[in-house]
Write a protein that binds this DNA or RNA. Structure first.
Lengths: 223, 223
DNA sequence: CGGTCAATCTTGACGTTGTCAAGATAAAAC
DNA sequence: GTTTTATCTTGACAACGTCAAGATTGACCG
């Protein structure tokens, strides 16, 4: 148990971690600089030694969210090497899993909580890395003839849009029980991606994929 | 010029209107109950006679956003009767136009600013009406053999997801100049929807659709 | 027409928030 | 060992959401 010192030592990361925890417990609405500082055991203005303002802390938390998405995608790419459509589906599924399990963190990362995101270079870089991973998967699919040809970045946008839109609307509460009672979230996602991939999702194939064991997210640290 | 009276007469709607105006000028961040009250010319607690709390005003503003979307969609359905794919594309385009021209209002309406949306019955009803309109368009497309068969509500989710995800990521600043320099937003949307509809979007067809005159949004009142 | 009542609006207050200024502390640099 | 610099604290301020108490007024009822 480290003795409480005047200088924290790693306050910046402690603040980011505290912020993510508050997001999980109290949602976007409950996130305040003062609560974050209190949780990290410092005074209410201590964060200003590490972040210019609240938006700056939010940028750091968002960047952490992108890092999580990146790491999950990387793991998926590695695990399903040589199976491009599977990479696509499981990467989408990992994205959705993160959004559902840490919805407030996901919203901060990718739902317009952060403003002027271009001002935060690390966020921009990681965002670009995430997109590049997706472009890579898309190109694999195209090379295998399993996805419509065309500019891979445009097709990547299409894939990302459908998965992102799906989970955003879901979190927004826009899907009604009449639908959610009949299908699982994963089945709905696969149905969406079935539009994009050229794989023939016959009812048999569809049922097989939908019934396959689900990709369980590992804690980030263990990947 | 009406004399200023103690009783406003239509304060509730005035507050909603003031809120939407503040959203347009200062964004989601700048929306406060006190500023809305000031803009409507009443004291800072007057809104509490009409709204239980800030979330309740936000719900009313969101509901107004849904109403706008509904009315635009209705107009599109009427204008392109008998051309289901065109209905789909123009409804999506109207959705995107609203999101781009009133982005803060759009975000409040459909980007997790409103919490516990289920508590606001008028919002839920309008949300359901919007979705029903889309299901109707989807069924028209399916009947014409221009969209994959299957449960029309599931296909509606797919269509909505791709358009919503696309515009959300765009507003989030996730699309890079390398893409936006080569394609217009409308072309990108049509490319997305091209995955979903079974219409053969050959380069010629594609070019023709993309070059067609754009659907200019009318002010809601004039529709 | 006069009185009652409920809806509407105001004044004033409270705790919380983001942010700034000024100063205290301790680690690092010389 | 002294100075410098990064880090953290205390204290203050305006803006915010919200509540309590009271003022104003239009509507309803005799």
């Amino acid at each position: 148990m480290p003795v409480k010192k005047y200088h924290h030592g790693d306050l910046k990361n402690a603040l980011i971690k505290a912020g993510i925890e508050i997001l999980a417990k109290e949602g976007v609405h409950g996130l305040s600089l003062r609560k974050v500082a209190l949780k990290a055991g410092v005074s209410h203005t201590a964060p200003y030694s590490h972040f210019a303002d609240k938006q700056s802390l939010i940028a750091a938390i968002s960047t952490e969210g992108l890092r999580i998405i990146c790491e999950h995608t990387e793991e998926v790419i590695r695990r399903y090497r040589g199976k491009p459509v599977r990479q696509l589906i499981e990467a989408g599924w990992a994205y959705i899993q993160f959004a559902l399990s840490d919805s407030a963190h996901f919203k901060v990362t990718l739902s317009s909580v952060l403003e002027r995101e271009k001002d935060y270079s690390e966020y921009v870089e990681l965002s670009y890395k995430c997109f590049s991973q997706l472009v890579c998967i898309v190109e694999n699919c195209q090379a295998a003839g399993l996805l419509r040809p065309g500019p891979s970045d445009v097709e990547a946008i299409n894939v990302w849009s459908i998965v992102h839109g799906f989970v955003s609307l879901y979190l927004e509460g826009q899907f009604y029980h009449t639908i959610l009672e009949r299908f699982t979230v994963r089945d709905l996602m696969i149905s969406s991606l079935g539009h994009i991939t050229l794989v023939d999702l016959t009812p048999r194939t569809y049922a097989r994929i939908a019934a396959s064991p689900r990709y369980a997210l590992q804690p980030v640290g263990t990947i």
